[in-house]
């Protein structure tokens, strides 16, 4: 790395990945929001005469085997992807943070041990396996995909929270709070949590992007959102049977997934560099 970059302000190096990342994410969110009020074509309407068109001026990304507009379907599919991934991160945060804070405040106790072993256990189940089991029991669906990815997220946040909270408990300001008579719960919420928010946001962005990939994978194998709800993963699955006839069907949903995940990863990298200038050289 050249010398000028080492001396550049943190926001400058960080912004080189943060801004493109945020722009991509904003684009996808915008597409999802706009799709609620407007899409170029109605995605629920079949138009067989217009089937399997390659990209043209009317249908920017072409049409599928039912004559539905791919561009519109991708806009609506963004809703599914974003909703599943956001809610799954929400589950991870809401369950993982309290678990991690509790474990850290009672370090070495039986409860700490149980929480940590429980984390290890859940970690042994890849999200796909959880989804397979939930589907075997309750049938496939977007909600089950959310639960499966959400459960997978819990130990990630619990471990991160506990690990970073443990070092904070050694700090003087926490000691001061204890001396002033605050209980473990209050200290965890008022002093520990605000100090690990940065880390949690960065990890949240990473889990968000993993969630988008996981959702796509689950709907690809038929364990995610069911028809008629459009989803990028299922569009890819449907494109597979037509891949010799209409290869463009397989391209655009893939690009949508890649741009979303890339945007989130760049945002995460940028945020991490901002919150920890020491690693910005890397």
């Amino acid at each position: 790395m050249s010398q000028s970059n080492v001396n550049a302000p943190a926001w400058y190096t960080a912004s080189r990945v943060l801004i493109p990342g945020l722009l991509l994410v904003a684009l996808v969110i915008l597409a999802a929001l706009v799709s609620f009020v407007w899409t170029p074509f109605d995605v629920t309407k079949l138009n067989i005469p217009a089937k399997l068109q390659t990209p043209n001026t009317t249908h920017w990304f072409g049409t599928d085997h039912f004559g539905r507009d791919i561009f519109s379907m991708i806009m609506v599919g963004a809703r599914t992807s974003l909703a599943v991934a956001v809610l799954a991160v929400g589950i991870g945060l809401c369950v993982g943070i309290p678990l991690g804070l509790t474990a850290a405040s009672m370090q070495g106790s039986l409860l700490d041990e149980i929480i940590m072993r429980g984390n290890d256990l859940v970690f042994a189940f890849p999200a796909l396996l959880i989804a397979i089991m939930i589907t075997a029991v309750f049938g496939p669906g977007a909600v089950n995909a959310i639960i499966a990815i959400g459960i997978f997220n819990i130990p990630v946040f619990a471990r991160l929270t506990r690990g970073s909270a443990l070092s904070l408990w050694q700090r003087d300001f926490v000691l001061a709070a204890r001396v002033s008579g605050k209980g473990a719960t209050r200290i965890s919420i008022e002093h520990i949590l605000p100090n690990i928010t940065n880390l949690l946001i960065v990890q949240g962005t990473i889990q968000f992007s993993l969630g988008i990939l996981a959702e796509a994978g689950l709907s690809y194998v038929g364990l995610g959102a069911q028809p008629p709800t459009p989803s990028w993963g299922r569009m890819l699955a449907e494109s597979q049977t037509l891949i010799t006839l209409a290869p463009h069907l397989a391209l655009f949903p893939g690009f949508a997934i890649i741009l979303t995940v890339l945007g989130l990863n760049l945002t995460g990298d940028g945020l991490r560099d901002l919150s920890d200038p020491r690693i910005r050289r890397r």
Binding site: S209, A216, L236, Q240, I243, T244, I257, I258, L266
Partner: peptide, 22 residues
């Protein structure tokens, strides 16, 4: 590698089929 992480492997698999098989 940034791009490689963002690509879903089953989509990459479809591309491989398109190019190397079909």
């Amino acid at each position: 590698t940034q791009l490689g992480i963002a690509i879903p492997n089953f989509w990459f698999a479809l591309l491989l089929v398109l190019v190397f098989a079909i």
